[in-house]
Each structure stands twice: as structure tokens, then as C-alpha cells.
Amino acid sequence: MSDRIVEFDIAVIGAGIAGLTCAQQLRCLGHSVVVLEKSRGVGGRVATRRLYDTQADFGAPFLDPRERLSQQLVQVLSRAGIVVPWTDTVYQVQEGDGQLNPAVNLSAPYYVAPAGINAVGKFLARHLEIWRCRRVQTVTPTDQGNWHLELEAMGDSGDAAVPLAVRAKAVVMAIPAPQAVMVLESGESGLPGPFVDRLKAVEFDPCISVMAGYPASKQRELVQGEYRGRSLLFPPESPLRGLFWQSSKGSGATQPVFVLHSSAEFAEKYLDATDLESVGRELCDWVGEWVFPWLKDPEWMQVHRWRYAFCRRSLTEPLLTAMTPLPMVCAGDWCGDRQIETALQSGLAAAEWVSDRLGGGPMPPLASLWEAIATKK
């Protein structure tokens, strides 16, 4: 394992949508940037799992292009063949009768990636230096006027030559606020108390996601019956938040795959459960009661818990900044209430703030940033 310490202008912690957008903008402005990500993949909650010869988007199920930044991104992704329109109607499930009533008629359709929604994260990660399987343990200022970041190799640590320490003139923390608090409080960051207190005030709701596959005969029934329920919502009192027909996102699916999202209340109850399979089966039982009885009996199932799924109490500004003792900015989809749109806004605002502090040039138009990512080899 290398004991080198590599220096960059900026270290971005977290390879979610906000972190990748911020890093891309800073790279385009000529800064040296490293992205530090504790998992193997990129995209954060824009996540896909490969399993049983198929795939499931177990985090964000789609892109909603009704806001300006998301719309610009979707346009570029569409031209690149990464995303396609999926549905323009969200349905509300009524208990017991299986009736689907339109809850929202969208002004623009939701978009999905047939290859998996994490293709969006992979697109935003192009050309960036990303150190995967590296969790930041501490962030401390040095006497030389830069931040020192101690890293921990996670699981299969990937490239053993990647160092376990980084130094940077500025740090962008693009991870959920509670995780940022844990990092900052694990060392002597020297950041002002009010800065950390603002982070502590941000609160998240959890969610439990179930990926479930069913017999191939059921897929044929759904297609032949022109089933409309690609995206379903459930009443507030239900233990279910949403149900998404995963196998309708691309052509050639041989079996139906659905992804269930639990309510926050249900997830709180089982967040630390050791037997996640039983939790998943309980949710399948519920969705069988509300939609199709055969949804109670999947051929296979995997369960994932999201501790920081949806921001319940968000920051009211697009980012949180400090200059004492050195430039530090926190950003993410918790800096507002529009999830991916907020993540894009916050990531761009963080890049502009950091570049201003380090003497960077003017910010390029966002459309040119997306096009540069798409066209650069």
C-alpha cells in the first residue's frame, strides 16, 4: 500500500450527482480535482444493482426533467442514447380493489436508462480522477495552508497503489449532512461551531428498497394486458411509498421485475433489523394486498436499506460554506427539496464558490459542460 500523500487543488468527498457535477465544473475551469468515494460505484442514490441476469434501479427510479438543470442534462443524455422517455403518468393505488387512478399527469415524461439508472452517474464521472473504495476518516488543516484528508480502504480496496492520504487547498463535502458531521467530528477540523450546527440541523428519512423478480408468464400478462402502472404511489398510511415496474424500462425483458420503496415510518421501524429478507417479504405481502396477489411470492428478492434516502429537514440555501480555517463547502440534494435538481444546483454553486476562492476563471454555461462531457474522448 502506497504511503504517498498526493496534492490537489480540490478534494471532493462523495461521487453522487452533486459531487460529480461540482468536480466536472472545477475540472473544466482548470483546477486539479480528486473525487473520493467510499463505494465501488458512482452516482450515489442513482444506483443500479446487477442480479439474476437482470438489473434493478434500487435508488432513484427515474429522471424528472421538469426543472431547468435536469432538463438540460436529460437533453444531452437523450442525444447520447443513455436515457429514453418512460411514463407521463403517476398512478395512485387504492387499497383492496387494485384500481389505478392518475395521481399526476406530468407536463414532461419521466426518463429512464435502459442500461440502468447508474448510467447517469457513469456519464457524469467521465474524465474525472475518482478514488473508489476510499472513505474519508478525518479532515484537518495543516500549517502549510491546506487540508489533510486521511483515507480508509473499504472492502476490496481496488488499486492498492492509491494513497491513503490527500492534501487539498479546498474541500467539497458532497455527502449527506449526517455523514459530513461524523467526518468533521472525528478529527480536529477547526471549523466554526455554527457551521457544524447547521449541518446537524439537517435531517433525513430512511427508506427500505426491495428488488423482486417474478415468473416470466407474469411479464407476458402485463405486456399483453397493456398494464399502465409503471410508477405507483400509495396512501400516506401505507407502509409502501412507491412501486416501480423495472422490467418496463427496456425491451426484451423475460420476467417482471419490480422495485418497492417503503414509507419512512416502516423503514424507521426496521432500519437496524438483522433479517432483511423477512422485512422484504413483509413489504411484498403488503404490495400483494394492494396491487396483484402474485406480488407476494417473488422468485427472488434482494433488500437494501437507505439510511439517508429523503431529506426531511433541508438547508434553505444551495450550499454551506466556511473560510475558517480554510475553504470548505458542503453541498448535496439536502440543500433544497427537489432531489436531483437540487443536487445539480448545489454542485454547480459549490464549484463556483470554490473557484472564486482559488482564483478561477468565469463559469462556463452549463449546457457546454454537459456537451463537453459527452463529446470528449
Rank of each mutant, 00 (worst) to 15 (best):
P114V: 03
A115S: 11
I117S: 06
N118K: 12
V120H: 01
V120A: 04
V120W: 02
G121Y: 00
K122G: 10
F123A: 06
F123K: 02
F123L: 10
L124C: 11
L124A: 11
R126L: 11
H127N: 13
L128P: 03
E129P: 09
E129N: 14
I130T: 06
W131Q: 04
W131H: 05
W131P: 01
C133H: 14
C133Y: 12
R135A: 15
V136E: 02
Q137H: 15
T138C: 13
T138Q: 12
V139K: 02
T140G: 02
T140L: 06
T140H: 07
T140E: 15
P141I: 07
P141T: 06
T142C: 04
D143A: 15
D143K: 15
Q144H: 14
Q144A: 15
G145K: 01
G145W: 02
W147S: 00
H148V: 03
H148N: 13
L149I: 01
L149A: 05
L151R: 04
E152F: 12
A153Q: 13
A153T: 15
A153S: 15
M154C: 15
G155W: 11
G155S: 07
G155C: 07
D156P: 13
D156Y: 11
G158V: 00
G158D: 00
D159N: 10
A160R: 08
A161V: 09
A161Q: 11
V162M: 10
V162R: 09
P163N: 00
P163F: 00
L164V: 09
A165W: 05
A165N: 08
A165P: 03
R167A: 14
R167S: 13
A168Q: 03
K169C: 05
K169Y: 06
K169D: 07
V171F: 07
V171M: 06
V171C: 05
V171R: 03
V172M: 03
M173S: 12
M173N: 04
I175R: 06
I175C: 06
P176K: 07
P176V: 10
P176I: 10
P176M: 08
P176G: 10
A177K: 01
A177E: 01
P178D: 05
P178S: 06
Q179H: 14
Q179W: 10
Q179L: 15
A180T: 13
V181T: 13
V181R: 05
V181G: 04
V181N: 08
M182P: 05
L184H: 03
L184N: 02
L184W: 07
E185S: 12
S186W: 08
G187W: 07
G187T: 03
S189N: 08
S189P: 04
G190S: 04
L191I: 12
P192Y: 06
P192T: 03
P194M: 08
P194K: 09
P194Q: 08
P194R: 08
F195S: 04
F195Y: 14
V196N: 04
R198Q: 13
R198S: 13
L199V: 01
L199P: 00
A201R: 14
A201I: 06
A201P: 06
A201M: 12
D205L: 12
P206E: 04
C207R: 05
C207Y: 02
I208H: 01
S209E: 08
S209P: 05
S209L: 11
S209W: 09
